[in-house]
Design a protein around this nucleic acid. Structure first.
Length: 110
DNA sequence: TACTTGACAGCAT
DNA sequence: AATGCTGCCAAGT
């Protein structure tokens, strides 16, 4: 059996699902919170296997540059940006969003 | 079985 | 600022 792999994906998905609406997180953040500090790529792979109708808010995950890592002009990229904008996340002319503003900081208010 | 690729990120040059 | 290397881990060729 796969042992870990399943569990890892599950953890990643849980972390992604924990990102509040209107906020974003980087692959590195997700990886770290999932317990794999430098396995940012693993996060992308986990998200990559998600079905289109998944409930996981994968669109809230962007790269360290605050940009959508998917190929620009591609459908998924377009979808991600659209969803983020719909949640109030604004993009610069550069095609990037302000991580300093939207990044899901490890705040534990309350 | 070995090498390459990929929704990344951090550091060195 | 731009480019290259390394680490990380799974999947594809």
């Amino acid at each position: 059996m796969k042992k870990f792999e399943l569990d890892i994906n599950l953890r990643i998905l849980q972390v992604v699902a924990a990102v509040p609406k209107g906020k974003v997180a980087t692959y590195g953040d997700i990886a770290q919170k999932a317990g794999m500090a430098r396995a940012a790529r693993r996060v992308g792979q986990a998200l990559r296997g998600l079905p289109k109708n998944t409930k996981i808010p994968w669109h809230r995950v962007v790269n360290a540059q605050g940009r959508i890592s998917l190929t620009e002009g591609s459908a998924p990229h377009n979808i991600q940006r659209h969803r983020l904008e719909k949640e109030g996340v604004l993009f610069n002319t550069n095609g990037a969003l302000d991580l300093h503003r939207y990044r899901w900081c490890h705040e534990n208010s309350s």
